[in-house]
């Protein structure tokens, strides 16, 4: 086993550890904001480490550049969707609070 194989294995292992931690947090954390926090760690660091492993394993600069682009767009998309989800969750919370304090206690 060469040094390159070892590096790929180590990066993959570290990436998967972040994915596992992110999934665990997604399942166990109490509210939307902290769940998003867990998921974005998996998306940013987990995917970054796995992509780095794949780029080294690919063995050419062209492959590495393509994987880097895939990673970049995944990160931008994940950042956008988590912003949207967080905003939506916050709007829903505000609406529930309004419903609780409304005299008739009505929904929506």
């Amino acid at each position: 086993m060469s040094w390159i194989d070892l590096a790929v294995l180590a990066l993959l292992g570290a990436g998967l550890a972040f994915y596992a931690a992110g999934s665990l947090g997604f399942l166990r954390f109490p509210d939307t904001a902290s769940r998003l926090h867990a998921l974005t760690k998996a998306d940013n660091l987990g995917l970054g480490l796995v992509a780095l492993a794949a780029a080294i394993y690919g063995g050419s600069l062209a492959v590495a550049a393509k994987i880097a682009l895939v990673w970049l767009f995944a990160v931008i998309a994940a950042g956008t969707t988590s912003q949207l989800l967080a905003r939506r969750a916050r709007l829903d919370e505000a609406r529930l609070d309004d419903a609780d304090s409304a005299p008739d206690g009505g929904l929506r």
Partner: peptide
């Protein structure tokens, strides 16, 4: 388009890219 203005801005930036 998203009705909420901040959401629309976030989605708009992503869409422009």
């Amino acid at each position: 388009g998203m009705a909420d203005a901040p959401m629309r801005r976030v989605a708009g930036t992503f869409g422009q890219l």
